[in-house]
Amino acid sequence: MSAESPLEIHDLTVAYHRKPVLWGVDLVVPAGQLIGIIGPNGAGKSTLIKACMGLLPVQSGWVKLFGQPFNKVATRVGYVPQRESVDWDFPVSVMDVVLMGRYGRLGLLRRPGKADRDLARSCLEKVQLLPYANRQIANLSGGQQQRVFLARALAQQADLYFMDEPFSGVDAATEAAIIAVLRELRDQGRTLLVVHHDLPTARQYFDRLLLLNMNVVAFGPTADVYTPELLQRTYGGRLTILSEVAQALGAQEPPR
């Protein structure tokens, strides 16, 4: 672990079709924490983590991961996308998907070897999916599919994880299993940023909360930040003018 903060964001503005979604975000994330990203729909939660990984063009500001731009440290970063973002009819097995987590570390031309397979198996074991390793991914329940993504992220052996709603559409038992895995990762000194939309559980699950609504409303230890006043500011639509102006800006400058 380097002394650098795993994630540092300065004055980040991101726009979809020229309509700003995130506005002037500043953030310094301490290492070894399990962090929940909380906010209403359209607050820019997924946008934030996608922008951190360079999946979206950034309008202004910068993001540094471990003190460096994303491309330099890609192998230290793991990602769990939303479950709906892929085609589950794709002709691959559970094992193949988990092995994809190793691709970043394999160079060109190299195949996943025995070590990679063993690691993938142990990751599947951790999420209790080992018996399903050779199944085609369409033949899994929603919770199992979510756990496949989690296993893939484990196989990435990253120091920093971005997870986009890993609890959506899973049953209570799966949710408990997932959070146990996340805590284990945290205890190993890794940093996790998890987009989450359920307030009561957010309070139990996370060490720190990032309250987001187009910009950072608050970021700090859960006990300090989980206050009625701050939550009201996050969810209370106090930024109607901001979004109204964003709308006007989008209308005035049509997408090219």
Binding site: M53, A74, Y79, S85, D87
Partner: peptide, 9 residues
């Protein structure tokens, strides 16, 4: 399969 993951890799 997952262009987002590919990009992040």
């Amino acid at each position: 399969f997952d262009p987002g993951l590919a990009r992040s890799l």
